[in-house]
Design a protein around this nucleic acid. Structure first.
Length: 577
DNA sequence: GCCGTTTTCGGCCCGACTGTTTTCAGTCG
């Protein structure tokens, strides 16, 4: 059973308990455990079988027993019992914005509402207004929410790459306004999370109302909400919700820290502050004893007041960064500027949109020392495959291009992204692979084989002496496709033993290795390389998303192979050994 | 239900907003 399935079951049980009126903290404990399990890089099912699930923070004896029952019987007895007590379709009702478990339970007890259909009927018949605490306004809001759900489906999170360009463009416009003093993109976009729900902009300005008006009147705004001296709210034409909050410069650090999040980071920060006799909010830090409140212009001062080293936004996820900041043991994170080359891209030879020369030029423009051109291989399909003869010609073309460039400072590597076939073998003969400068092995077919077979398949590729690197290890597409099942720990163990690199694919749809796997791989001693998988010259820019994943995985430049210059990197390739 | 610079019980973040209500509970981020 996958971690996500266990997490889903615990989340459902949390809501069932909440509907049943359990104490708040029990519900919170189940939700927190679900979060930790969802994020875990290792199989929680395996941990539970070994009786080690309690090693996860937030999982105690009780939860371990419940997970074991879920694995053995496919359900948790407590959940089954509660589902007999009231209709489980009541859970859907709690998903309507503005309705929670308390209200849902009262709708059931007092109006016999069991589901979204029942809720709609009652609202249309004007029956909800009879319940204490609800009125006509609530009826209208519920009907509007049901309508939105029917037409738009559940609110989905947007890919960071859909949100970040919009956020940056809006921030740039605001920065250019004469009344603006500082504007920062905050929230999950600042943390470079995989997906975002909305955009938070934090600003300070000499004329706040004027700055807020600028956002409301921005051409990207499809609809504008209220706008005043404290901020403004818009929805862009591509459906991104944007909140601008404007604050006095003295408290800019407090507000920025608060709205950068994450929620989990902030909760942990505030809990720690309480133990120090301090109360932290977006407005400042209050000392309980003296009653004195302090405001800070910068985030660094906020962290300093709490006895912590500055925490980079990408680390603020409640994954131990506060404890590390306290000990002064936060890693010095890798940066985009540390990279010396990109080792995965495509050209018009397979499914890319730019030529070999255009890709090389773009890499030189970025200041790289090397670019591996890795078009798809012989069995790729879609008419985009590259035959063995095509590849031999490509090797010659690359040699000619390098000669023409005539510099020691930059070189193109003749490479390939080779399909790992179902039996784990590459789809070019070894003699041809040996002529390449660089080869990546990737899985592009037969995703649905068993976890054991997939693990065996990829480990075989890892052990192949002429595959230098494994591409997009799990094949996931964020929000669209789960990755294939594979025992990543076994793969990393083999990769470390064989000197096979594993990439962080920077494509914002992939970001694969995901961050928890990247941490695990680096800890296992695997060389990571961060590559774009660019299919056009402009897409070399996507490297920022891959570096963000590396940073969110706590990685330093040291742990990334392609931060080395060519001389050193060339010797680190498996084929060079 | 979890956890320990308040260790095996008694705590467990902070504030804004909403809709309903004359002081607040529920929900949300």
């Amino acid at each position: 059973m996958q971690n996500a399935e266990i997490a889903d079951a615990l989340t459902e049980l949390a809501t069932l308990y909440e509907l049943d009126g359990a104490v708040r903290y029990r519900v919170l404990a189940y939700r927190e455990a679900a979060r930790v399990i969802r994020q875990s890089p290792v199989s929680v099912a395996e941990l539970a079988r070994e009786g080690r699930a309690t090693e996860l923070p937030g999982v105690g004896k009780t939860l371990e027993t419940k997970i074991a029952a879920l694995l053995d019987d496919g359900e948790i007895p407590a959940a089954a019992k509660l589902k007999a007590k009231f209709p489980p379709s009541l859970i859907e009702v709690t998903l309507i914005p503005g309705l929670g478990a308390k209200t849902a339970r009262r709708l059931y007890d007092e109006a016999g509402i069991e589901s979204l259909d029942g809720l709609r009927e009652a609202a249309e018949d004007g029956k909800l207004r009879d319940l204490k605490g609800l009125g006509e306004r609530a009826e209208q809001n519920i009907l509007a929410a049901l309508e939105r759900l029917a037409t738009e489906g559940p609110a989905e999170r947007l890919l960071l790459s859909e949100v970040l360009p919009v956020a940056e463009q809006l921030a740039e416009t605001l920065r250019a306004h004469p009344a603006s003093e500082a504007v920062t993109v905050a929230g999950s976009a600042r943390r470079w999370a995989e997906t975002c729900k909305d955009v938070d902009l934090i600003a300070t300005a000499s004329d706040p109302a004027a700055l807020a008006g600028t956002l409301s009147e921005h051409p990207l705004a499809a609809t504008a909400g209220s706008s005043g001296s404290s901020g403004a709210r818009i929805v862009t034409h591509n459906g991104v919700k944007v909140d601008l909050r404007i604050v006095a410069p003295e408290a800019y650090g407090n507000l920025l820290q608060h709205f950068t999040g994450s929620k989990e980071h902030n909760v942990e920060l505030r809990e720690r502050a309480v133990r120090m006799g301090l109360s932290v909010s977006e407005h400042g830090i209050l000392e309980a004893e003296s009653g004195e409140s302090a405001r800070y212009a910068t985030e660094a001062e906020v962290y300093e007041r709490l006895g912590l080293a500055y925490v980079e936004p990408e680390l603020r996820e409640g994954r131990g960064e506060i404890a590390a900041a306290e000990r002064g043991e936060l890693p010095e994170l890798v940066e985009v500027g540390d990279l010396r080359g990109d080792l995965h891209c495509h050209t018009t030879l397979s499914d890319g949109k730019s030529s070999l020369a255009e890709m090389a030029q773009a890499a030189q423009d970025r200041g790289y020392e090397y670019l591996a051109v890795t078009d798809h291989s012989a069995t790729h399909g879609f008419g985009d495959h590259v035959t063995a003869d095509d590849l031999r010609r490509r090797i010659e073309e690359v040699a000619e291009l390098n000669q023409k460039l005539g510099t020691e400072d930059f070189r193109v590597l003749a490479g390939s992204e080779v399909n790992i076939q179902t039996d784990g073998s590459p789809d070019y003969p070894d003699e041809l692979l040996a002529e390449l400068d660089w080869a990546i092995g990737s899985v592009h077919t037969s995703f649905r084989i068993s976890r054991a077979e997939m693990t065996k398949r990829i480990v075989a590729a890892v052990e192949h002496p002429l595959l230098d690197c494994i591409g997009h290890l799990t094949g996931r597409l964020i929000g669209r496709r789960e990755g294939y099942e594979v025992d990543v720990e076994k793969v990393f163990e083999a990769a470390a033993a064989n000197g096979t690199m594993i990439e962080i694919n920077a494509n914002p749809n992939r970001r694969d290795l995901r961050e928890s796997h990247a941490t695990l791989a680096a800890d296992a001693g695997v060389w990571i390389c961060v590559n774009t998988d660019a299919h056009r010259a402009a897409s070399l820019e996507f490297i920022g998303y891959g570096i963000a994943t590396a940073r969110r995985a706590w990685l330093t430049a040291d742990q990334i192979a392609n931060t080395r210059g060519w001389k050193q990197f060339s010797g680190m390739r498996k084929r060079a050994k």
